[in-house]
Design a protein around this nucleic acid. Structure first.
Lengths: 354, 354
DNA sequence: TTGTAAGCGTTATCAC
DNA sequence: GTGATAACGCTTACAA
């Protein structure tokens, strides 16, 4: 019961299968496959050329889906981010993509918007599409039911040979590219201290986000270490946005008298900057402001922001490298990347008091 | 020659196939398929429940690759952008993703970096992965060999039932979401004119990019229409970056005396802003500057930038809707989206001269 | 309403 | 060095 044996060598517009190539080359499908897949199985040079010629003539493209079905390797990777329109994640995705392109892997991208349900949906969808690896670019959410489900799913995935890479603090274990958020914040606090600041405020992010907690820990740890007098009144929280930063800044302004404010991320710092601007408070003359991340906007804000550069592109690239290694069953250590302080104009050097 | 009939109902950690579900439910694979795929083929309520129960117990996830192989629908879409770390594309991708998520489509993302070879590679890879549709988010490149190859590939793709969506000026035809770049620039010129400006400069982008040409055409058309005196000396070109904009601004400064400068995009405008700032030229008091796109940075620049908002998220969303319609063989008209001018602080109203 | 079996486009096993 | 042919996990005639 053949379908269209006759149409064998029709050089039309439809997509051709290995069978067409084989027929045109006058060889078996098996042989054609061996040539096209770069198999190690021997094929005579003459035959190889015939096949290549036929494939070329038909513009043959092997169907990766079919190949995936039999090899159990889809050559696809799923990456989960919080928001793909955020350049932070955009850079990571770019690094990942550049890293896996060479080995001919493709990237599925999903933006969860920090919605636990959506996040689980996307991971499930990745599974359905048989991705070889999943990259969690963002930190995990702190929803209990979500955590449990995700962990169970991850276990099945890795047990089945799937690779998990995390590029952030995450409840899931897997190959990890590691930017030490706690240490980064501590370092920024020490930097401010070095510039003479003693009364320092902190704008923290939403407490249901792991990063928020970690970064906050970095602040309190450094404050304690340096013997700074920071109580709860020195800390205000808001969303990881400019608006959130502005509001938090407003709170702090009402509560305490400070010489410097550190924000949990640049967006919040920019919001703080704008708030101070509209309140007529000069930066850095009356109050210093520092951020964290060095997003593109940081440079162009009302006052060029002093912040710490998180090497996002590199994180993506290292993640890709780790992922590829894991896929090859090579083991590799977690990678630790470090940021560096980018000094711009938002922090003043002052005479230390007390 | 059965493989592991015995392991039928093993509730382990490996991934299960329809066969396992069928065996656990005590039905045939066909019946299980009919339930899981939501087929219209009748299945008794009792059987359906048994199957659902079994699937649930095994956490069964249908293998989309296998399904795609037989239905010739992969439920994947590829999107090609110039740079995924650019929020312009990030927003589009987000809109696309949100739009196709509901219908359970997944998104492959590829960043071509405007490299013709890379772009073709990615498109070929999309084909190999049997995407149902390809979205060209960025304008096409103007390389002749590239154009020819791409056109041939596109023809084969659409002939085979593939859907092409373009979200920008593109050599390829397909469902189109349309932002009239020429008109947008013209409108900005008219806006500057309304604010009293007569001596207007233009910072244009690289001439090997279609958008550059189209936007430039918008400038010259409006200038002519308004009887403005703009010769070649009023136009400087540079890359679509802040650095490029700064350099182009420098050129203009050396050549002509202007009251306003329009940049082909916001990044260039910001570059111009910075250049003017360091040259001690006040914006908007001494010179007005306007951009185009309304990227996130626009608001936070040295001077909040007056520009035109390109509804990127909406473009993505409409693109998704068009794509879904085409996939359903419904026909739909191209969608025309419009931008609106966002007035900030970089443009002054002046007394028209001459 | 259910089941049997062919087939999607590959690769892999086994003969020759 | 080459070729049949059985998978991979699913859908879909066609039968029953």
């Amino acid at each position: 019961m053949t379908r269209d044996t006759d149409s064998a060598v029709k050089k039309g517009t439809e997509s051709h299968s290995l069978r067409h190539v084989a027929e045109l080359a006058g060889v078996s499908v098996a042989t054609a496959s061996r040539v096209m897949s770069g198999s190690s199985h021997p094929v005579s040079e003459q035959t190889r050329e015939k096949v290549l010629e036929a494939a070329n003539q038909l513009s043959f493209q092997p169907n990766r889906l079919a190949r995936a079905l039999v090899t159990a390797r889809s050559h696809t990777v799923g990456v989960l981010v919080h928001d793909i329109s955020d350049p932070y994640f955009g850079e990571i995705v770019k690094g990942l993509e550049d890293g896996i392109h060479a080995e001919d892997y493709r990237l599925f991208v999903a933006s969860s918007e920090r919605d636990p349900q959506k996040e689980l949906d996307y991971v499930r969808a990745f599974f359905a599409h048989q991705v070889d690896a999943i990259v969690f670019a963002a930190s995990s959410l702190t929803d209990a039911a979500y955590a449990e489900t995700l962990e169970a799913m991850a276990k099945r995935f890795t047990d089945g040979g799937g690779v998990i890479v995390v590029l952030s603090d995450h409840l899931l274990r897997g190959a990890k590219v590691w930017f030490d958020n706690k240490r980064a914040v501590s370092e920024m606090v020490r930097y401010l201290h070095r510039r003479g600041h003693r009364r320092i405020g902190y704008l923290t992010g939403p407490s249901d986000l792991e990063v928020s907690l970690v970064r906050l820990a970095g602040f309190t740890a450094a404050a304690e270490e340096l013997g700074l007098d920071v109580g709860p009144e020195n800390i205000a929280n808001g969303h990881f946005t400019a608006v959130g930063g502005g509001e938090a800044m407003g709170e702090l302004l009402d509560r305490v008298d400070l010489t410097a404010v550190l924000a949990a991320n640049d967006l919040m710092a920019i919001g703080a900057l704008r708030r101070l601007h509209s309140a007529g408070i000069g930066v850095p003359d009356e109050l210093s402001v520092a951020g964290l991340d060095d997003i593109p906007i940081a440079e162009y804000g009302p006052v060029p922001l002093t912040t710490m550069r998180v090497p996002t592109y590199q994180i993506g690239l290292e993640g890709a490298s780790l992922l590829l290694k894991a896929l090859r069953k090579e083991d590799a250590d977690d990678v630790h990347v470090t940021g560096e302080i980018v000094e711009r104009d938002s922090v003043a050097t002052i005479e230390p008091e007390q």
